Amino acid sequence: MRYQVENVLAVQAELGECPVWSVSEQALYFVDILAPALHRFDPQSGAHQVMPVAEHIGCFGLHHQGGFIAAMRSGVFQLDKQGQVVNRIAPNPGDAQRSRFNDGGVDRLGRFWCGSLWEPQDRNGAKLCRVDEALQLTVQAEDIMISNGVAFSPDGRWMYQTDTPHGLLYRYPMDERGEIGPREVVRQFAQGEGGQPDGAAVDSEGFYWAAMFDGSRVVRIDPADGRIVDEIPLPVRWPTMVAFGGADLKTLYITSSREDRSAEELETYPQSGDLFAVRVEVAGLPEPIFGAK
């Protein structure tokens, strides 16, 4: 299939991430981690709202009480609809001076998962955490350098995660209570293969769509064997994450980055940091809401 990629919002984010589609609002939320800010984009009207937040914001989910649950540098917070802190749910269990929360999302049982990023990148110092309906944060996995690509199979039996610098896509079995078991490698991306696996989403057929950072593409992966079965070329080199949206959930939204890029690189890729959309054949799944069963 030939894909038509459209630049739908020339936002020029420093580090655009975590697109989340609100079915009830028919609008897309996403973050600029480094600005730091939450964004709301209405594709029908073109309206774009920017909501500054107090510190680096890695990922968030829609909250059943309205507003958001968000993983920021110093911890996990409940935010109101304007991105203002309602309360702090839990502190960052790592070293917040060298580790901030990064990618994450809400699972099929309405719990919030958030992984961190170990900024020195000299060891696997990041963590994968879970916040349950009782607002308890627990560390679920370690031995990670940069946690990315958190997504869940349609039946809730598998959780996926990438470790970007190591080029690894993992999956963890999940039981009926949402507890995870030992991880296994779905795919090891080779050096020079066309980017590193970053943020991701799962479609209604269970296939895993990953943004390939530094690879100018999004790939669709068969989780059964790790094969790349489709790809979408992009006009930017540093895509960061994807989400399904639109009335039929067949619009794939893609965030991107311009962080630490040279003037020469940005001249070559002037749309870096913008928000893109492309129509796909297989629909995604409605975004789960934190605290909702």
Rank of each mutant, 00 (worst) to 15 (best):
W238F: 13
T164D: 01
G194R: 05
P239E: 00
I144L: 15
G156A: 04
S204V: 09
A211M: 05
Q161E: 14
M145L: 11
S153Q: 10
D163Y: 00
R183S: 05
Y208G: 05
L168H: 09
G167Y: 08
T162R: 01
P173T: 07
G199Q: 04
M159Q: 04
A151F: 02
G181L: 07
D143S: 13
G194A: 03
L169G: 08
R217F: 00
D163V: 03
A201V: 05
F213E: 00
V236S: 08
G215S: 05
I144F: 11
V219L: 05
I144D: 09
I180S: 13
S204W: 06
E184D: 10
P154M: 04
S147C: 11
E176Y: 09
S153F: 07
T240H: 12
Y172K: 05
A151H: 03
M174W: 07
G215H: 03
Q191M: 12
R187I: 11
N148K: 06
E142G: 09
M159N: 05
M212P: 04
G167T: 06
P173M: 03
D230F: 13
G215A: 00
D175E: 04
G215P: 00
A151G: 13
W158K: 03
G215N: 07
F244K: 04
G181V: 02
Y160N: 00
W209E: 07
G226Y: 06
W238C: 14
P165V: 01
D230G: 11
I221W: 02
G178A: 08
S216P: 03
E193W: 12
V229C: 12
R171Q: 10
D143G: 08
T240L: 01
Q196C: 10
R220A: 05
Q191P: 10
A210W: 09
F189I: 12
D203Q: 06
L169I: 15
F189N: 09
I232E: 11
F189G: 04
I232Y: 14
G194K: 00
N148Y: 07
M212N: 01
D155Y: 03
V150L: 15
V186N: 09
R187W: 06
A247D: 15
G206L: 01
V186I: 12
D214N: 11
P165K: 01
F152V: 09
Q188H: 15
D214C: 09
W209D: 09
P182I: 02
A151C: 01
F152R: 05
P235R: 09
R227I: 11
I144T: 10
Q161G: 08
W158E: 12
D155E: 13
E193M: 13
